[in-house]
Amino acid sequence: MTIPAIEGQKLCKKYGDTLAVNEIDFSIAAGSIIGLLGGNGAGKTTTIGMIMSLVTPTSGSVRVFGADMSKEPYRVLHRMNFESPYVDLPHRLTVRQNLKVFGMLYGVAGIDERISSLASDLALTEFIDRPAGKLSAGQKTRVALAKSLVNDPDLLVLDEPTASLDPDTADWIRGHLERYQSRKNATILLASHNMGEVERLCDRVIMMKRGDIVDDGSPSQLLARYGRQNLEEVFLDVARGRREPLPEKEAAS
């Protein structure tokens, strides 16, 4: 039996009396791109936190490549990485220094060659010796992406990877992610509020609301299920509770 890339079982997180994630079950196959959608407070970030071992579940478990992330994260952390615009790299270190430090942390062999390769792939060469704090938003995102790819991860978790980017840069990032996934057959978990991005990249979408998984399917299945033209409309239906999914037969027709 193939081990799922990520598997949540009755995964639950409470902060005091606030229920952030409500005993959710899910399984994500290796080699897929999964979108995690939901409004603010839906539980996406907490779920990602538990997947990355940053947050301890109140009950239930989440496994990554078979490793329970609250008990044995170091079995698999070297195979994972994470990128978010809400997490920074040290500002005073140059891009090269940052990548070298993270390359060492992940035990990357041939770090200098790896940095050159990333610099070439992500167009960092021009500013590779500039402090990370002096880069534009687009450049910072590319550097953060380079950091998240430094260990050639089997699982890449991205929290709004194109937030606050101009359409050109955002499109360029999406293209790079597609190429990476295709080359590596990596699993990518993507939390995003950009529905176009999710529609373009994801094989499957998990929709969350108030800590629960409220729907799950491929973008085309979701469009058919809600009778909508795009995922943004589906998102609004789910977020505002204004339309229930159509019955299976009707959706199929």
Partner: peptide, 8 residues
């Protein structure tokens, strides 16, 4: 967070 999710 970058350090906490690394193998460090």
């Amino acid at each position: 967070p970058n350090l906490m999710i690394s193998p460090l």
